[in-house]
C-alpha cells in the first residue's frame, strides 16, 4: 500500500450536466481540476501503485445516459460507459464490427470486462490498449461533450503523443460512433485482429494489429491498419495502407508494405518486450493478414 486516501476527493454525479459542471470548474490550487472516474480499472491500479495524482475525481459510473449501444441506419453508437461485457453481448455489433468483440474478449478477465469501459480505455490513452487498434481499423468517431457543446473528432486524429489527446478541458468522451458500411460495398471483407500479449490471458499487449480490408480479386480496394504497443500512441498506419492500395497484392507489394511499416512504427524496449521483437512480430502479423486477404480471394 503506497497511497494516502486522504489526498483524494471523489464525488458521484447523477446527471450528465452535473458532471460537466464539475469538470468545467477551474482547477483548485492544491487539488487540481476534476477528473473523470469511470470503471476505475485503470485508475485504481495507479492508486494502489502510488502513482495516481492526488486530486478530485468525478465518479461518472451512475450516468446511464452514457451507457448502452444504439443502432441507426448509418451507425452503431456506443455510450462511453459501455463495458466489454456489453460489447461482447451485442449480437449485431459482433457481426458488423467483430474486431471490437475480439478486442473485448481478450481484455483482462471477466471482472475487468464487467467494469472496464470503452471510454476509459480510450481516455487512458495507453499505447498498449486493445480496443484502439480495432477503432482505428473501423475509422471510428468520438463524440466529446462539455458545457459549451458537443464536438465530433475522428478517432485517428485523437491521440497526438504519449498520453496526449484532443480532449479539451471540461470535456467528457460521451460516445464512440462506428459508421456502418453500405451493404452494397464492392469486394470481400476481411476483419483481422491479433493481440500478442505476454501470456494467453490477463496480459498487456506487446503488439496488437487490427485491420479492416476490402479485396477484389488481386487488389485491395480499401484497407485500414490499427497497431497497438509499437508507438507512443495507438497507430493508424496510413503510409503502409497507401502502399498496399497502389497495386496488385503480390509478393513485391507485400515486401514494400513491410518495409514501409517497419519505418512507420517506432517500438521501444521496456520491461515487457524488446523493440526488435515488436518490429519483427508487427511485420509477421502484417504478412499473416495479407496472406489471409490473398487466400480469401477464392470466391
Amino acid at each position: 500500500m503506497s497511497h494516502n486516501l486522504s489526498d483524494f476527493v471523489a464525488q458521484s454525479v447523477q446527471t450528465l450536466p452535473e458532471a460537466l459542471r464539475l469538470l468545467a470548474e477551474p482547477a483548485d490550487p492544491s487539488l487540481g481540476p476534476w477528473r473523470p472516474l469511470a470503471g476505475g480499472t485503470d485508475l485504481m491500479v495507479t492508486l494502489a501503485a502510488g502513482t495516481l495524482p492526488a486530486g478530485r475525481y468525478v465518479d461518472i459510473w451512475p450516468l446511464d445516459e452514457l451507457r448502452g449501444i444504439t443502432v441507426t441506419d448509418q451507425a452503431i453508437e456506443l455510450g462511453a460507459l459501455t463495458t466489454y461485457t456489453e460489447i461482447r453481448q451485442h449480437a449485431q455489433l459482433m457481426t458488423e464490427f467483430p474486431l471490437l468483440g475480439l478486442a473485448a474478449k481478450e481484455t483482462g478477465a471477466i471482472a475487468i470486462q464487467n467494469r472496464g469501459t470503452i471510454g476509459g480505455n480510450i481516455a487512458n490513452a495507453s499505447p498498449a490498449a486493445d480496443t484502439p487498434p480495432a477503432l482505428l481499423a473501423y475509422d471510428a468517431e468520438l463524440e466529446l461533450t462539455s458545457l459549451s457543446g458537443v464536438r465530433t473528432v475522428a478517432y485517428s486524429q485523437f491521440h497526438s503523443g504519449y498520453k496526449q489527446m484532443d480532449r479539451r478541458p471540461g470535456e467528457l468522451i460521451t460516445k464512440v460512433r462506428l459508421r456502418r458500411p453500405p451493404s452494397d460495398a464492392p469486394g470481400r471483407t476481411v476483419h483481422y485482429y491479433r493481440k500478442v500479449g505476454t501470456r494467453a490471458a490477463q496480459a498487456i499487449s506487446k503488439v496488437c494489429l487490427a485491420a479492416f480490408a476490402r479485396i477484389d480479386g488481386a487488389r485491395l480496394l480499401n484497407i485500414r491498419l490499427g497497431l497497438g504497443s509499437v508507438a507512443p500512441t495507438p497507430l493508424r498506419c496510413t503510409r503502409t495502407e497507401s502502399v498496399l492500395l497502389s497495386g496488385p497484392l503480390d509478393e513485391a507489394l507485400i515486401r514494400r508494405a513491410e518495409a514501409t511499416l517497419a519505418y512507420e512504427c517506432s517500438p521501444i524496449d521496456d520491461v515487457r518486450s524488446t523493440s526488435a521483437y515488436r518490429r519483427r512480430v508487427t511485420l509477421n502479423l502484417l504478412r499473416e493478414l495479407l496472406q489471409q486477404c490473398r487466400s480469401d480471394r477464392r470466391e
Binding site: T198, R199, Q202, A203, V271, R272
Partner: peptide, 22 residues
C-alpha cells in the same frame, strides 16, 4: 528484469506467471 540490482517488473502485470490458459 534487473537494473542496478533492483527488480524492474515487481508487479504481477509485468512479471508473467502462467495462467490456467497457459
Amino acid at each position: 528484469v534487473w537494473k542496478e540490482g533492483r527488480m524492474q517488473n515487481a508487479q504481477m502485470t509485468n512479471y508473467i506467471m502462467p495462467t490456467s490458459l497457459d
